[in-house]
Amino acid sequence: MKSFFKYFTGIFYGVKSLLSGLSVTGKYFFSPGAIVTQQYPENRKKLEMFDRFKGEVVMPHDEKNHHRCTGCGICGNSCPNGSIEIIQDKIDTPDGKKERIIGKHIYHLSMCTFCGLCIKSCPSNALAWGQEFEHAVFDRSKLTKILNKPGSSISKDIAE
């Protein structure tokens, strides 16, 4: 008799537990407002990332095509993966001295792990995070980028 009673209470509690689970899913079935899915490729025009989002490393240039990079190479040294290469140029200054400036700031996006050490270590705040995140390309060589724009020069307040 006892096992008979136990058998039926087991069935009763089993059905009750299933119904309480179904009530949760049923609640969402009848309230489509609670659905949170983002329609990603369709909403990409409106999509705004957070301002600290780590998309890629960029070098901000002002309207006169000036950047803040001195070409010191600290960012390359602090990078754990060797994804930053600095090629320096030598120029003759008007007073007859030779000075080193940045020639090419090469950034290998394919090797970057987005740790942020280059940006943190830069003494002149020349690097920043960009918001771009759709990095898929058909050719791997497109992931190697030169961060200083052609014809750009160092901003005057850094050079002094």
Partner: peptide, 24 residues
């Protein structure tokens, strides 16, 4: 996390001695 650290999964937010940035 993304708002404060910049990334969602692999944050690299702590540095020896402190944090990369203050919280948002």
């Amino acid at each position: 996390f993304e708002e404060s650290c910049g990334s969602r999964l692999l944050h690299s937010y702590y540095t020896p001695g402190g944090l990369m940035k203050d919280i948002h």
